[in-house]
Simulated assay, not measured.
Amino acid sequence: MDDAPSCTPQDLIRWSEALAGIARTGLGFTDSLYERERFEEVLAVAADIRVAAGSHFESDTLVDEWMKGVGAGVAGYQTPKVAIGAVVGNDEGEILLVQRADSGVWLYPTGWADIGYSPAEVAIKEVAEETGIECEVVGLIGVLDGLRRGFSRIPLYSLVFHCRAVGGALAAHPLETSDVGWFREDELPSPLAGAESWGPMAFAAIRGDALPPHFDPPRDPPWRT
Rank of each mutant, 00 (worst) to 15 (best):
F29P: 02
T30L: 05
D31N: 14
S32T: 11
S32H: 11
S32G: 08
L33H: 12
Y34G: 06
E35A: 13
R36G: 06
F39L: 06
F39M: 04
F39S: 02
F39R: 04
F39K: 04
E40Q: 12
E41V: 10
V42Y: 06
L43G: 00
A44S: 10
A44K: 12
V45I: 13
V45R: 05
A46D: 00
A47P: 02
A47T: 03
I49D: 00
I49Q: 02
R50Y: 05
R50I: 04
V51L: 09
A52Y: 07
G54L: 09
S55L: 08
H56E: 13
T61S: 14
V63T: 05
V63H: 02
D64S: 15
D64V: 15
E65P: 07
W66P: 00
K68P: 12
K68Y: 14
G69S: 09
G71S: 09
A72V: 13
A72Y: 11
G73T: 07
G73F: 08
Y77K: 09
Y77G: 08
T79C: 10
K81V: 03
V82L: 03
I84M: 00
A86T: 02
A86I: 02
V88Y: 00
N90C: 09
D91K: 09
E92F: 11
G93E: 07
G93K: 12
E94T: 07
I95N: 01
L96Y: 04
L96P: 01
Q99S: 09
R100D: 04
A101H: 03
A101Q: 06
S103K: 12
G104Q: 11
G104V: 07
G104P: 04
V105C: 11
V105D: 13
V105N: 07
W106N: 06
L107Q: 11
Y108I: 10
Y108T: 10
Y108P: 04
T110D: 04
T110N: 13
T110V: 11
T110Y: 03
G111K: 02
W112E: 07
A113R: 05
D114M: 12
D114H: 14
I115C: 14
G116P: 09
S118I: 15
S118L: 15
E121Y: 05
V122M: 00
